Amino acid sequence: GYRKEQERLGIPYDPIQWSTDQVLHWVVWVMKEFSMTDIDLTTLNISGRELCSLNQEDFFQRVPRGEILWSHLELLRKY
């Protein structure tokens, strides 16, 4: 899972600490993992702090059909 990727690349476990690059890395990883092609990366060119401050409605406004990303983010925030 993504935890291995975080360990390998030194990405903080807590998404709130992610840099913009780390947010984009996570988005690309999830897209590959779940064979998603319809995500516009430019809408998530934000820091982890900004990402974690979005509520579900705001998130889906930025990322239509972003349910998998949202669920994955929720999982990461719990651990």
Rank of each mutant, 00 (worst) to 15 (best):
L24Q: 08
D40C: 05
W26R: 01
N55P: 12
E57C: 11
F59V: 02
I46A: 03
D14R: 00
R49M: 15
M36E: 12
L9G: 04
V28T: 15
I11Q: 00
Q6N: 01
H25N: 12
D38Y: 06
E33C: 06
L54G: 02
N45D: 08
L54Y: 06
Q22C: 03
G66F: 02
W26M: 00
R65H: 09
H72V: 03
R8L: 11
R49T: 10
Y79W: 10
N55S: 14
S71I: 08
G1V: 07
S71V: 09
E57K: 09
F60G: 09
L51K: 00
D14C: 04
F59T: 00
R3T: 08
M31V: 12
R8P: 03
L69P: 00
Y13G: 09
S53T: 08
Y13I: 13
K4N: 12
I16M: 15
D40A: 06
L44F: 09
D58F: 06
M36I: 12
Y79N: 15
V23C: 04
V23H: 00
W70F: 07
I68W: 09
E50T: 09
L24C: 14
E57T: 11
K32D: 15
K4T: 11
T42V: 09
E5T: 05
F60I: 15
T43V: 11
I16Q: 15
R77M: 05
L76K: 01
G10S: 10
E67M: 08
W70P: 00
L24V: 13
S71C: 08
Q6G: 03
M31K: 10
L41E: 08
P12H: 02
M31H: 08
V28Q: 15
Q22T: 01
V27Y: 07
P64N: 07
Y79L: 12
R3G: 07
I39G: 07
I39S: 06
D40S: 09
E57D: 11
T37L: 10
Q61L: 14
S71Y: 13
D14T: 01
E7Y: 05
R3D: 04
H72E: 14
R8T: 09
D14K: 02
E74Y: 05
G66P: 13
L51C: 01
L9V: 13
L73Y: 00
W26G: 00
W70K: 01
M36F: 10
D58S: 14
S47I: 06
S53K: 09
D58E: 10
H25S: 06
G48L: 00
T37Q: 14
S19L: 01
R77C: 06
D40R: 05
I46D: 00
T20P: 13
R49E: 15
R77D: 04
R49Y: 10
L73P: 03
Y79F: 15
L54P: 00
N45W: 06
V27F: 06
P12E: 04
L73Q: 03
E67A: 13
V63Q: 06
I16H: 15
M36Y: 11
V30Y: 04
V28R: 15
D14Y: 03
V28W: 12
V23A: 03
S71L: 08
K4A: 11
E74K: 09
I11Y: 06
G66V: 02
P15G: 01
D21P: 10
E50S: 05
L24P: 00
L69D: 02
S53P: 04
W29M: 02
R8G: 05
E74Q: 11
Q17G: 10
E57I: 08
I11M: 05
E50D: 12
D14F: 00
E67D: 08
T42F: 06
S35R: 12
Q6T: 07
K4E: 11
G10M: 10
S19R: 08
I46S: 00
T37H: 12
L24Y: 06
M36T: 12
T20L: 05
S19Q: 06
M31F: 10
P12S: 06
K4Q: 09
E50V: 12
V30M: 12
Q61E: 12
L76V: 07
T43E: 14
L69V: 04
L51N: 01
I39L: 13
Q22M: 06
R49F: 09
L69M: 09
P12A: 05
Q17L: 14
E67T: 12
T37A: 13
L73H: 02
E7Q: 11
W18S: 02
S71Q: 14
F34E: 11
L51F: 02
P64L: 01
E5V: 10
D40I: 04
L44V: 07
I68H: 10
D21S: 13
G10C: 10
L9D: 05
W26S: 00
F59I: 04
D14N: 11
V30S: 11
L69C: 03
T20I: 09
V63M: 09
V23N: 00
P15Y: 01
S35E: 12
F60H: 09
E50H: 07
P15K: 02
G1C: 08
F59Y: 01
P15V: 06
I68A: 15
R8D: 07
N55H: 09
V30N: 05
P15H: 02
S53E: 15
S47F: 01
L41S: 09
R49S: 14
D58N: 07
E5C: 05
S35T: 13
I16R: 13
C52L: 10
Q6C: 09
T37P: 14
P12V: 03
I16W: 13
N45R: 12
R8I: 06
D40H: 06
G10D: 07
T37D: 06
E33G: 07
L54R: 03
D58M: 14
S71R: 12
R65P: 04
L75R: 13
D21H: 12
S53L: 09
E33S: 10
E74H: 15
R62L: 14
G66I: 02
E7R: 08
G10V: 04
Y2N: 08
T42I: 07
V28D: 15
K4I: 15
T42P: 09
Q56L: 05
C52T: 06
V27G: 12
V23L: 02
Y79G: 15
P15F: 03
D38N: 10
K32G: 10
M36N: 07
K78C: 11
L41C: 11
L9C: 14
V27Q: 06
W26P: 00
G10T: 04
R62I: 12
L75W: 09
V63H: 01
V28M: 14
D21Q: 11
L44H: 02
C52N: 04
L54S: 03
D38G: 12
W70Y: 11
T37V: 09
N45I: 06
L69N: 00
I68S: 10
K4C: 06
S47Y: 03
S71W: 12
Q6K: 00
I46W: 06
V30W: 05
I39Y: 05
S53Y: 04
S35A: 10
S71P: 09
E74D: 13
Q6F: 07
L9R: 12
R8C: 05
L9Y: 08
Q61C: 10
D38Q: 10
T42N: 10
P15E: 00
D38I: 03
V28K: 15
G10K: 12
W26H: 02
I16L: 13
T20N: 15
H25W: 04
R3P: 04
Y79P: 14
N45A: 14
Q22Y: 02
W26L: 01
V27S: 07
I46E: 01
W70V: 01
M31L: 09
D40F: 03
H72N: 11
E50L: 07
V30D: 02
K32M: 06
D58P: 00
D21C: 06
R65C: 14
E74L: 09
E57Y: 14
E7D: 15
L73F: 07
V30P: 02
E74P: 01
D21R: 10
L51A: 00
S19K: 06
F34V: 09
S71H: 13
L41I: 14
L41T: 11
P15W: 00
W18C: 01
Y79A: 13
L24W: 07
K32S: 10
H25V: 06
D40P: 09
G66S: 07
G66H: 03
L9F: 15
E5F: 04
E33H: 10
Y79K: 15
D58I: 13
Y13F: 14
D14G: 02
V23S: 01
W18L: 00
S35L: 07
E74F: 05
T42C: 12
K78T: 13
F34W: 10
F60K: 12
